[in-house]
């Protein structure tokens, strides 16, 4: 499943990042590393960017970039608040 497939409010775990090295570096620096937990906060209107929370960091990224991140969705009770 890709990051773009998640609904707002859903929790997930990063499975893998399939992107160019350039983008992978930036994503890793902002916390998108395999095994990390995240939550989709909201989708921007008109196919706008995604707002994602990873631990104490909030990130916005375009859908084209988010589509390169593979995630494992988590059931709500398994997710940390």
């Amino acid at each position: 499943m890709r990051l773009t497939d998640l609904a707002p409010g859903q929790h997930a775990q990063v499975a893998a990042v399939h992107s160019t090295e350039h983008l992978a570096h930036r994503l890793a620096a902002l916390g998108f590393r395999a095994g990390k937990l995240l939550q989709i906060m909201r989708h921007g209107a008109l196919s706008g960017p995604l707002h994602v929370r990873l631990g104490t960091t909030d990130v916005i990224l375009r859908r084209s970039e988010a589509a390169q991140i593979e995630v494992l969705p988590l059931a709500d009770e398994a997710a940390p608040a």
């Binding site: 983008l23 960091t57 990130v59 916005i60």
Partner: peptide
């Protein structure tokens, strides 16, 4: 621009 649009949203 080759800069990816992935930026932090500060509080």
């Amino acid at each position: 621009s080759t800069e990816p649009f992935v930026i932090e949203l500060p509080p």
